[in-house]
Design a binder for these strands. Sequence first.
RNA 1: GGGGGUGUAACUCAGUUGGUAGAGUAGCGGACUCUUAAUCCGUUUGUCGGGGGUUCGAGCCCCCCCGCCCCUACCA
Length: 496
Amino acid sequence: MSENRQNNNPKQDKPLDGSDQVAVRQAKLDQMRENGVDPFRANWDQTHTSIQAQALLTEDMEDGPEVSVAGRIVAFRLMGKASFLKVLDRDGRIQSYVRKDEIGEEEYAAFKKLDLGDFIGIRGKLFRTKTGEVTVRAKEYRLVSKALRPLPEKWHGLTDNDQIYRQRYLDLIVNEESRERFRTRSQIIREIREFFWDRDFLEMETPMLQSVSGGAAARPFRTHFNALDCDFNMRIALELHLKRLMVGGFDRVFEVGRVFRNEGLSRRHNPEFTMLEAYQAYTDYRGMMELTRSLIQQVSERALGTLQLERNEGDTIDLSGEWREAKYKDLIIDAVGRKDWFDLPKSAKLEKAKELRIEVDPSLEDFEVTNDIFEKVIEHTLIQPTFVTHIPKELCPLAKITEDDSSTIDVFELCINGQEIAPAYSEQNDPAVQRSAFMKQVGEETQELDDDFLLALEHGMPPAGGMGLGIDRLVIFLTKAANIRDTILFPTLRPS
RNA sequence: GGGGGUGUAACUCAGUUGGUAGAGUAGCGGACUCUUAAUCCGUUUGUCGGGGGUUCGAGCCCCCCCGCCCCUACCA
């Protein structure tokens, strides 16, 4: 990739016929250097971006002030004595018009040697073309950075998925929807932060390297710390450390951070993904319900300007107003069509699962069979925002037991777009109950016992509500992405 | 892990019954002072993903391997 083409390339001896585009560009660059022109200038004084420049020329104006723009050449229409080009900067594209009689014969000849993909700076007055497009009429131009490799094809763009993910920069140069999606993602995360700051939360940072990775049941990535000669795990959740902060007295905290789970890849799963978790003292899962709904509504309103999200499937997700609440048990009873479901023996449940055409492993626990029905039959039907409440206590050891029903916990799972987006709990703060819940889990699931966390709980944690939200999945439905990889700039791939 | 699909020029793709590689874009040379995928004339470029096999002959058929995509499984 980086071998010295000037000296080692045997093709250099042959006349350049255009067959090796990189060699042609390299030769142009060498020629420039010989002529004393620096193809990688230290800087260019950019006074306006494309959008800022376009805003200067209002409808009623024929021409406008002088501006200096800069960016990558993404369209190049050369003619004998005048040319049009489009320059891409962080805001978008702007057209420029370059005339031989205005920049001089020599400069124009050099201008025609530029390539698609080169970075250029242009200074000149704004004017409007016959077709009404705001354009910079070049008084001066400079190549500011040479591109040695050509861009993907201009019309079809870049469609090879592997290349889109491995060379994301090409995707971003060529595919506007992609550029727009990641711009929106950044805006979404910014709005999430604003929301919590406005509510007096502190943004905290907790360790990614942990000796015990708790807070969820997932296989961790393991690594080794040489200095201490011991193994560490990458974190799988933020929960247990943020709760330590609650113990410490920071009683409104949140964190947006990467978590790592050593599990499969799919359209909805990437091994590293971005999680939001928030904890607030003196509230409970009902308070988290209001918080979560307001958060998503505010983010959608501000980042997208709407609460009505059209889906690729043709229907619309309506985020406005109050959101539906449904008890887990009611959804199950509805789906299986039996009121006595929870009194049935496991064998009858397995049989019913078969009827519903779900593959269920007979060695599963009773509650796991039920939960399979939830995940495989119900979850994907919950397109409109739905808080699923009163979930069986076996499914989560970190929440408080419901007061009038000891079989369930005070939690909700928010489902939107047929996916679980955000769970929230009334957080368990009784160290003894917490310990026994952990003990039951250890062994059967992969949740690790974190004694240090239990020690913290024994010092007392205020009553609190907590929630977690998978940001990538939020971005999926807010941007109509088809795949989690379209919301992660550099998704995990097999090394090439 | 299982099933299906796919890999051809820098990019997007076509390639017939097995007969020796093609288009558009990009590039190169030329014409052109309002283009919008600019246009017009001329023109270069291939380890057909890799390896093996069948055959007089393989991009095409068979086997093995690799990458990618979809479904499925795993997955709080």
